[in-house]
Design a protein around this nucleic acid. Structure first.
Length: 260
DNA sequence: CTCCCGTCGGGGTATAGACG
DNA sequence: CGTCTATACCCCGACGGGAG
């Protein structure tokens, strides 16, 4: 994605000075997001933070939503580090390790751009096509490449088609993103990022190898749908046997957190 | 010097909130 | 409701300053 801007809103070509002012405004908006909700941002406050005037702000951006869009584009570009992990070969032995790397990398991107990415997703959810497209530009390559890694280990079968693997990648990505979007302090009040990350990586492994085991069974004996389901359950023993309770359930952490 | 890009100040318009 | 007030939006024209 190319986020380089060559013209201002008046159609003038941006020179060095213009690029600097535009960058200053974007950095100022980023700074304000540390202390203000994106919906509270105003052109006036951003311009003041950047040490320029509101008029200058409107030279580069239509409104505050527009500058948040520009910041969202930058955040999207920051996902490159994640794709480096997908570039490597994944095997059934190291899938958990690779999954953990992806989760960590996604968490790092979200740590850098949390407020902006939340705003991007909110606007996309509200139906803004511009933000929706931006979000899909990030999601599609991620899910595409994630699915490719899964397929390399666990090829499609009669009961688990390519589209099912893409669905798995989509579901796992949704979980990863939801957790990455969570405020770190909230995460630490609960089960903690480390534990969640390790278990999510384990879930990824379960999903991928679960599919592989079904594929193997089908290769030797044409299994019924029921048999395939049973096999899949056997691959992940103990998963449904235990009934873990979250810390929130046990101690009511949300209550104590409110009082604190 | 001139030219042109970028910035600024001023002010009209729009909007939100308080109040009767 | 309507009115008042404060604040934000955003356009216009003038000015500043760097490059040639």
């Amino acid at each position: 994605m190319n986020t380089e801007v060559t013209k201002n809103k008046q159609g003038q070509t941006l020179g060095r000075k213009g690029q600097e002012t535009r960058a200053k405004l974007m950095e100022a908006a980023r700074q304000l997001l540390d202390t203000h909700s994106p919906v509270e941002l105003t052109a006036v406050s951003i311009a003041a933070e950047a040490g320029t005037s509101p008029a200058s702000f409107y030279m580069y951006f239509d409104d505050t939503k527009d500058i948040l869009f520009a910041l969202s584009e930058v955040a999207g570009e920051d996902m490159a580090a994640i794709h480096a992990i997908f570039d490597q070969a994944w095997t059934s032995d190291d899938i958990e390790e690779h999954a953990r790397k992806v989760i960590d990398a996604l968490n790092e991107v979200w740590a850098r751009h949390r407020q902006v990415l939340r705003f991007r997703n909110m606007e996309a959810d509200r139906g803004d096509p511009r933000f929706e497209e931006l979000r899909m530009n990030t999601y599609v390559p991620f899910i595409e490449r994630f699915a490719q890694r899964i397929l390399a280990i666990s090829p499609p079968s009669a009961t688990r088609k390519r589209a099912d693997v893409y669905s798995e990648a989509t579901i796992l990505h949704a979980a990863m993103e939801r957790l990455a979007a969570t405020e770190p302090s909230v995460m630490e009040k609960g089960l903690g990022l480390k534990r969640i990350t390790n278990n999510l990586a384990r879930v990824v492994k379960m999903v991928v190898l679960g599919g592989q085991a079904v594929a193997k069974v089908e290769a030797t004996a044409p299994a019924t749908k029921a048999a395939a389901v049973q096999t899949r359950n056997e691959v992940a023993p103990g998963v449904v046997k235990t009934k873990p309770r979250s810390r929130v359930e046990r101690t009511g952490t949300t209550k104590t957190a409110k009082a604190a």
